[in-house]
Simulated assay, not measured.
Amino acid sequence: MMIVRHAEHRDLDDIFILAGKSGVGLTSLPQNKEILLARIARTQKTLQGQAAPNEQGYLFVLEDTQLQRVVGVSAIEVAVGLTEPFYNFHVGKQVHASQALNVYKALNTLFLSNDHTGCSELCTLFLDPEYRKDQNGKLLSKIRFLFIAAFQQAFQNTLIAEMRGYSDENGRSPFWDALGYHFFNMDFSTADYLSGIGQKVFIAELMPRFPVYTDLLPLAAQQVIAQVHPQTVPASRVLESEGLRYQGYVDIFDAGPTLEAEVKNLRAVKESQTCAVKIVSSLPEATGRYLVANDRYHDYRAILIQHAADADNLSLTAEQAYALGVQAGQSIRMLPLDKMESK
Score class of each variant (00 low, 15 high):
Leu12Phe: 03
Phe253Cys: 06
Leu67His: 12
Val78Phe: 06
Pro174Cys: 05
Ala318Pro: 02
Gly25Val: 02
Ala276Pro: 07
Phe151His: 15
Gln222Thr: 01
Lys45Leu: 10
Ser272Val: 12
Ala226Val: 10
Phe155Leu: 09
Val269Gln: 00
Leu259Ile: 04
Ser141Ala: 14
Ala323His: 11
Val224Pro: 08
Ala293Gln: 07
Asp11Gln: 05
Lys264Phe: 04
Lys278Val: 01
Val71Phe: 08
Ala255Phe: 03
Pro129Trp: 08
Gly49Arg: 09
Ile76Phe: 06
Leu159Asp: 02
Tyr246Arg: 07
Phe188Pro: 00
Gln330Gly: 04
Leu47Asn: 10
Arg245Ile: 11
Glu262Ala: 10
Ile148Gly: 03
Ile197Phe: 07
Thr258Arg: 01
Ala308Thr: 13
Glu77Phe: 10
Ala220Asp: 14
Phe188Cys: 02
Lys142Val: 00
Asn32Gly: 03
Ser22Glu: 00
Gln152Ile: 04
Phe184Asn: 00
Ser281Lys: 11
Ala286Met: 12
Gln156Ala: 14
Gly288Arg: 07
Val103Leu: 15
Met334Tyr: 15
Leu316Asp: 04
Gly81Ala: 09
Gly256Ile: 00
Pro218Trp: 11
Leu266Val: 10
Val73Gly: 02
Asp177Gly: 02
Val73Met: 04
Lys200Thr: 14
Asn170Leu: 13
Phe202Trp: 09
Glu260Asn: 11
Trp176Gln: 08
